[in-house]
Design a protein around this nucleic acid. Structure first.
Lengths: 146, 146
DNA sequence: GCTTGTTGTAATTTCAATAGTTACATCGAC
DNA sequence: GTCGATGTAACTATTGAAATTACAACAAGC
């Protein structure tokens, strides 16, 4: 099981917006071309990012702007906006274990705190990285190219 | 996107084996009843755990035994045995971004180290918990019940 | 006000993975 | 050889991701 590509696509979108905002009008067609996918896929992701309050999208005329500074948007903000995780739980249980079995009726309570700690560790690391890291990281990579 | 229930089912299996090994013969039917699923599902998971070298399964007569001490099997060992993650990468990219776009051709290099750090944080936390924690944890829960 | 380019979104298709189920060959102990 | 168990193939149902087509809604410029 892997986390869907929508997450990395969303980070790709943010990087493009920041990189090209002064050169081009960054539309869903433009983004689809850079990512090599369909514009509708991009628009669906933009809708999710907008619902999460991370961006504003200009209807009719087109164009994307961030609602906060690059340094104020973390990978976790993007992940949370994009991944439709049920109840916020990363790990899934088999529903309805046997209540007559001492293990079956306690398995949830037994595992919950440990699984939560694992999920927390992952999310805490996600909060360490911001979109500003993407700008500076890309700058370095482009300088190496030259 | 959530991690499949096979992982928590595998932990459930280990807990049952440890809890009932002296009282009952722990078969795939027995386990299926506690977890409330199909015996074949259990056998498939047992096959994965066996392939990873965590258990031995007695054919014909039935029965499961661990190949190591409880304290020597971590949640990560189980996760690794169960989850068929491609190349070991938790995060998926959109394949074939546009190489003519400065962002498209660098997005992988830009994100790889950060995504790896996130995955590492999760896996490191998984290595902190062992099957022994499940034994002691269940013992406490059962004492509370009484 | 009409044209143009864009976003928003519904509907559909394809593909892959999870989970469940039936069936049966294989095995080991008695 | 019988019995109870595992190993595994084959099939189905369900779900979600991703792609695609189509079109309504919108905003700006002429």
């Amino acid at each position: 099981m892997q986390i869907s590509s929508r997450f990395t696509v969303a980070l790709h979108i943010f990087t493009c917006v920041d990189t090209f905002k002064n050169e081009y009008k960054v539309t869903s067609d433009f983004l689809a071309s850079s990512i090599n996918t369909n514009p509708v896929i991009i628009r669906k992701i933009l809708t999710q990012l907008k619902s999460a309050g991370l961006i504003n999208v200009a209807r009719g005329t087109g164009g994307i702007e961030l609602t906060r500074d690059l340094s104020e948007i973390t990978f976790f903000d993007v992940y949370e906006a994009i991944e439709p995780v049920e109840d916020g739980d990363l790990f899934r249980f088999h529903e309805a274990p046997n209540p007559d079995c001492p293990v079956g009726r306690n398995i949830h309570a037994l595992l919950d705190d440990k699984l939560k700690a694992i999920q927390d560790a992952m999310e805490a690391e996600m909060k360490k990285y911001t979109l500003l890291d993407l700008r500076t990281g890309l700058k370095e990579l482009l300088e190496k190219e030259a």
